[in-house]
Amino acid sequence: MLLKHFDAAAARKRCMTYRRRILDISQQVQALHAAGAFSCLEMVDVIYNGLMRGAGSDNCPDTFLMSKGHGCMAQYVILEGLGVLTHRDLDLYCKPDGRLGCHPDYGVPGIEASTGSLGHGMGLATGMAYTERHVHKGDGLIFTVLSDGELQEGSTWECMMMAANLGVDNLIAFLDHNGMQSFGNTAETHPKFYPIREKVEAFNWETAEVNGHDAGAVFDAVTKRKGGRPFMLIGNTVKGRGVSYMEGGAIWHYRSPNPEEYKQAMAELAEVSS
């Protein structure tokens, strides 16, 4: 049922446009989590523009939820591109007359669940996937993007155990493994967080690991999965990918660039493929 072909070159062009749009919006507000949106951007694009069947249409059988709610700018600009959110919606981001905030809110078009507090998306996605597969007996797929920090929440592991127990082979999770959290590099602050993939597989999930900025590789890894179990794609990414001074800088988790930084970012933006 999934698309057989995915145009990775077109995805690179889209993602550059998305990054520009996010940077534009960053100039209207103090904070918008640009770096966390940039790290998962290619994966979210692959989900909406490659994996979901008829994303943005009323009869799309598939669901996406952004478990790492702070990455929602990636979702907003893509929903804008699909015509689900309007240009005006994004222009009014975090403004009193608008309806988009720093985290996705259930009820806004295209937003299937409220997230933002980490460690909630896996439960919501598991419940959705279970209902689609085992109650409604349908073929709806549930896609979710998690941050690596969320994998430190016990609730995420509770639900991963349950997803495997419940046999929800229609649950496809993406781990935005950018290796950074507020206190620094996870490899240094919490070295025993690693290895990740073995932990996930020990919970009886199927996994694949690719460069999360390589849209073609992301698409192929998901479409070539064996199935029969919940699936997690570990996407190795760079926080702030696409803007040199944001890459690896913890401050960009939250801060918006000033006008000069904005100019530099716009000048250097290029297509990202890895």
Binding site: H120, L124, G127, E158
Partner: peptide, 13 residues
């Protein structure tokens, strides 16, 4: 925590 989260996902469906 899983029980409540999964229930919420089921309610959303």
């Amino acid at each position: 925590q899983a029980m409540i989260g999964i229930a919420a996902g089921m309610a959303l469906k």
